Simulated assay, not measured.
Amino acid sequence: MESLAPLLSRRSYSRKKLIHPAPNDQELQSLFELVMTTPDHGNLKPWRFLVVKGEKMQVLADATLEMYRRQLPGGVLTEKARRSCQEIANTPMMIIAVTDLKPEHDVSLWDQWLCGGAAVQNIMTGLHLMGYGGFWYTFLAGDELKPVLGMQPEDQVLGAISVGTPKERFVRPLERKSPHDYCFEWQGLGKKPTPYFGK
């Protein structure tokens, strides 16, 4: 369908493939308004988003490097850790999605986690539609780094999204897997589902 065409070209870009500019404040406002449309059982908004940009990218990179140093045996940094932190410093912007769970609420923590992940996906989709690129990766904030990010001890990072403009030479369609192997039609109780699209 033509209405879905803009989304079919969505892809992720590693940090090394992202350059300036990143979204401005007005664009970020629109992006987070999109996030507010995320399906949210209980309307809890179980997330918080930290926007890191400018000179604070180097501060974040340094703090991350120190976290790695404390986690690695003997405090000896690997080349991979150094390279990763340098990439963070060079990234135009990062949006760090953090949980803000409500364990006392009737909505299960599982639902709240899924909702937070859906919110991050909306950020990725919105960035693409705005002409920017993003890279969603796991960022396990240790106890040393949580206070630096303004997180509570019980908070966890849903994802760290590197944000910027994709380098032009990397903007090209990707070969996708067919959905045929992943979609099935339910045939009733005790019956084996059959491929929805046939073979």
Rank of each mutant, 00 (worst) to 15 (best):
W110S: 09
Q71D: 02
P39G: 10
H105W: 07
P23G: 08
L65Y: 03
C115A: 15
A63N: 05
Q26V: 11
L65N: 05
N43V: 04
Q26R: 13
F32I: 05
Q58I: 08
A119H: 07
Q112D: 03
K102Q: 14
A81W: 00
L60E: 05
W47G: 03
W113T: 00
V107T: 09
R83S: 15
L28Y: 10
S108G: 11
L50S: 02
L109A: 01
G74V: 12
L28T: 11
D62R: 12
P92D: 12
T64L: 01
D25V: 15
Q58M: 06
N90V: 04
V120D: 05
Q29V: 12
D111R: 04
G42T: 13
D111Q: 10
R70M: 03
M67C: 06
A97L: 11
Q26H: 11
Q58T: 09
M93D: 03
A61K: 08
L44K: 10
A61E: 05
D25L: 15
G74D: 11
P103E: 09
A118D: 05
Q112K: 05
G116C: 12
A119C: 08
P103Y: 07
R70T: 00
E79D: 15
M67K: 04
R70C: 01
Q26S: 15
Q121K: 03
L31C: 10
D40V: 00
Q121D: 07
V52Y: 01
E27Q: 15
T125R: 11
D100Q: 15
G42C: 11
V59C: 12
P73W: 13
I95Y: 01
M124A: 13
M36K: 06
G74K: 10
A89G: 08
A61M: 09
M93K: 01
M93V: 06
I95F: 00
D100L: 12
V98R: 07
Q86P: 08
V59W: 09
N90Q: 14
A63I: 03
L101A: 09
L77D: 02
M124L: 15
R69A: 07
G74H: 12
L31M: 13
V59G: 10
D25M: 14
E27M: 14
N43E: 01
C115I: 11
K45E: 07
P73H: 12
N24E: 15
T78K: 06
T91G: 01
E104Q: 12
W47V: 08
A97H: 04
C85G: 02
L31H: 09
A63F: 05
Q121W: 04
E33G: 13
A89C: 07
L101K: 07
Q112V: 04
H105K: 08
G42S: 11
T91D: 00
P103V: 05
D25W: 13
A63L: 08
Q58C: 03
L60R: 06
K80L: 03
Q26N: 14
G117A: 07
L60W: 07
D40F: 00
V107E: 08
L114Y: 13
P46L: 11
V120E: 09
V120N: 10
D100G: 10
H41F: 04
V76E: 06
I96L: 07
H41E: 02
G54A: 14
E27Y: 14
D106M: 13
A97F: 05
E104C: 03
F32S: 10
R69E: 09
Q86N: 14
Q71L: 00
M93F: 08
D100S: 14
I96Y: 02
R83F: 15
P39L: 02
R48F: 10
I123S: 01
Q58V: 09
E55L: 10
A63G: 05
